[in-house]
Design a protein around this nucleic acid. Structure first.
Lengths: 173, 173
DNA sequence: GTCTATACCAGGATAGAC
DNA sequence: GTCTATCCTGGTATAGAC
């Protein structure tokens, strides 16, 4: 991975995330990355290939988050960890997550095995805690994490009070 | 508003919502609506104008929802009503709401006065109920509504169990 | 690995006839 | 109000030199 290659990846990520994939032209990416337009195609075949490269790059990141939650044995601790997720995203990853969240609407939610394992491990936590409907609870907590993450990515938020409210609802405080 | 005009609006909404605004060409819209491409520009000036027409069209709809919540006097009842919102969207409005939710990421969340009033009325409900941090609570409930709505719009959901889980968290059940 | 030049096409938009 | 034909720009992608 050369430096220019990395520049392309960085520039494309930022532009894709802020202006959308289809409305970002390859020439714009090239200018922003300080490279010739042709180089993009040499390295990534086409625009879609560039997007895929960015996505693969980030998948590792997302799996790390999921794993950090799943490896927690105690069910309460696990839920606590999961609900913290929206607030532990470092700001230099915001662009990546913005991109992921936008793509949901055109390409469907990202559905890889890591995601399924994560979902299951949450459902299991609710089971262990004897919640009435663990499947629905898992669905809800996922929706909350997504909703709060959206809030974090799009607006200015004071994490502490928001987190407190959440934990109180789950009696984790 | 002629029939063809309405056809254009319908076709555009569906395409914008499913494939994204920028990746939907005017020619595609024209074909899907069964009209000539030129007609789109006669009626709506340009693609952006078409989008705006769709959005204005829908704003009434969204305001109705907000108003139905705000007019409820009892704070508990009001929150109850708000939390029901994701589940009362009729499926023939899904495309519109999908569009709204995608646009958030490129153009920022829709911020009109109706939205502000809605937010305030939720915060006030929490105040009346003596919650510790009404502002954060309002932020949270908004995030939950958004997250659950996303779930409803993008996945197949059994509303009842999910709603039960939510209401239990807010002790509204 | 990288740049320049260029081909090619699709997209948005306009003009003019009916 | 609507259609057909057409323009023009800019976007994706390739070829070939360095």
């Amino acid at each position: 991975m050369t430096e220019k290659q990395q520049n392309i990846l960085n520039a494309a990520l930022k532009l894709f995330a802020t202006e959308g994939v289809t409305s970002t032209s390859t020439s714009k990416i090239a200018k922003s990355a300080g490279v010739s337009e042709g180089l993009i195609f040499r390295h990534f075949t086409n625009k879609e290939g560039l997007l895929q490269a960015i996505l693969e790059n980030g998948r590792e990141k997302s799996d790390e988050y999921f794993n950090s939650v799943m490896k927690v044995k105690d069910p309460k601790e696990r839920l606590l960890m999961a609900l913290h997720l929206p607030f532990v995203i470092p700001s230099d990853e915001y662009d990546f997550w913005r991109l992921i969240y936008t793509l949901k609407w055109q390409r469907g939610p990202m559905e890889h095995e890591g995601m399924d394992l994560f979902r299951n491990s949450l459902r299991q936590a609710f089971e262990e805690l004897n919640y009435a409907n663990p499947t629905a609870e898992a669905q809800l907590i996922e929706a909350i994490i997504d909703g709060v993450t959206t809030e974090v990515l799009l607006k200015d938020i004071y994490p502490k009070p928001l987190l407190d409210c959440i934990l109180e609802k789950y009696k984790l405080k």
